[in-house]
Amino acid sequence: MTGTPDHDARRPPGAAPSPRRVDRVGLIVAVGLAALSAVLFWDAARIPSTGGYAGIGPADTPRLIGLGLALLAAWAAWDAFKAPAEPAPAQDLPPILWIVGGLGLQLLLFRSAGFSIAGGILFACTAAAFGRRKLWITLPIGIVFALAVFAVFAMLLELSLPAGPLERLVFGV
């Protein structure tokens, strides 16, 4: 690849460049692929082999793909030791957690609180991830926005979106 060891973002500042350094991301990928491959083989083992007239049954494809993943895991591990690591762009963790948290809250709340409140929370969390941390402003904006979306899609176009207390209050559904 085009990346050189000098650009490895994960190396502590000041450390001497060393061609022997292991690419940690590459190793994570290798382990992940190997695990996925193992899941595929494990699952395939439970499937009764009913290939019928085709001779290829439902368990054979997972095995083939599992084999491919295992080879790719080995290749990734080989590269992690051999090839210079690619620089991963430096990332801030908090914004990621804001968005993941927003999606998680929406997932937990959409049934009980309804589309607008859950969507408003996601809206506010996403805005917070991009630096608008004043939740007392963004949350009401988000809820009103989601309520407007609900009005158009659920009321006018009859898409079935989960209704909660707010929707019942405003639209009487």
Binding site: L122, F123, T126, A127, V149
Partner: peptide
């Protein structure tokens, strides 16, 4: 912030 908040909703 508004663009991505809207996209996700």
């Amino acid at each position: 912030p508004w663009l991505y908040a809207g996209i996700l909703v």
